[in-house]
């Protein structure tokens, strides 16, 4: 239960961090909040030769609104997002999601960028990024590039970030005012990673669904965008029946893994129930 020895570096700014990583890209790990990496090191599932600690890189901190997007520094803590004034009014889905992450002590320390780079398919931030059609800025030795949510998540715990790139910033375009959104999940205990869950954004034009974004967690090797459910919803009247049918439509689309916490069939069922509830909640939050 003790991590193996490692070299420790604490860069003062992003440029220095990028240089440190570029020197040993295959041996180094980036340390953000450490709420997933350090347990893995304690179990020696991860034995990095070098840890590059981003705590203290001030330019990666902070949360702000910019041109209708929520922009989070990679080192913004979950707590920073939770405390962001007016977040629930502006986008309930994000506020819901943050409240579901771990426990207070985890949220005080864990980071938005760390969660996304870790890419746990049951985690909240990757699903939020996918549901809002967001993007991340990756910093590397040859400069920065923007990666859209759809191109970022490769498979379990794997992103398309290069070995010498650092996730620096997260952009979440917020839905237009009036849209309803929700994030609902089922976990065995409060704060555990979810068995399954759903993130939903609904825009209505009267009774008709003008736009829908549907993302599921815990059912695939990455956040699962349920395009079938989305196209089912788009253009339909947002009745209970429509929402229930849209939720049911995901059944044949997913093949969740079975594990000690639940069979594949159980997770599929739970995902459908979570999606129906998320759709109903999102609909109830739509304001003219």
């Amino acid at each position: 239960m003790k991590p193996a020895p490692f070299d420790y570096a604490r860069p003062r700014n992003l440029q220095e961090a990028v240089e440190l990583l570029a020197a040993r890209p295959d041996e180094a790990k980036i340390l953000a909040g450490g709420q997933s990496l350090v347990p893995m090191m304690a179990f020696r599932l991860a034995t990095p030769d070098v840890l590059i600690d981003l705590n203290g890189v001030g330019e990666l901190e902070g949360v702000r609104l910019e041109d209708g997007a929520l922009v989070l520094g990679a080192m913004a803590r979950h707590r920073d997002a939770e405390d962001f004034r007016g977040l629930r009014d502006r986008c309930a889905l994000v506020a819901d999601a943050v409240g579901l992450i771990g426990h207070p002590a985890i949220r005080n320390r864990g980071t938005v960028g760390g969660s996304i780079a870790h890419a746990d398919p049951a985690a909240e931030w990757p699903a939020v990024l996918t549901a809002l059609g967001g993007s991340v800025v990756a910093a590397g030795p040859n400069g920065s590039r923007t990666i859209g949510a759809g191109e970022l998540f490769d498979t379990y715990f794997t992103t398309t970030l290069a070995a010498d790139e650092i996730l620096a910033e997260v952009h979440l375009p917020l839905p237009p005012a009036g849209a309803g959104s929700a994030f609902i999940e089922l976990a065995r205990r409060h704060g555990d990673f979810a068995l399954a869950g759903a993130a939903v954004v609904l825009e209505l034009d009267g009774e008709i669904v003008a736009e829908a974004r549907v993302v599921l967690i815990g059912v695939a090797d990455r956040p699962f965008r349920a395009v079938t459910a989305e196209s089912f919803l788009r253009g339909a009247a947002a009745t209970d029946e429509t929402l229930a049918l849209a939720a049911a439509s995901i059944g044949p689309e997913i093949e969740p893994m079975s594990d000690v916490h639940g069979s594949s069939d159980y997770r599929r069922h739970v995902a459908g129930v979570m999606l129906r509830r998320a759709l109903e909640t999102a609909r109830s939050r739509v304001t003219a």
Partner: peptide, 9 residues
């Protein structure tokens, strides 16, 4: 702020 002392170096 509360933190897990086992998850910090």
């Amino acid at each position: 702020r509360s933190v897990r002392a086992c998850l910090l170096f």
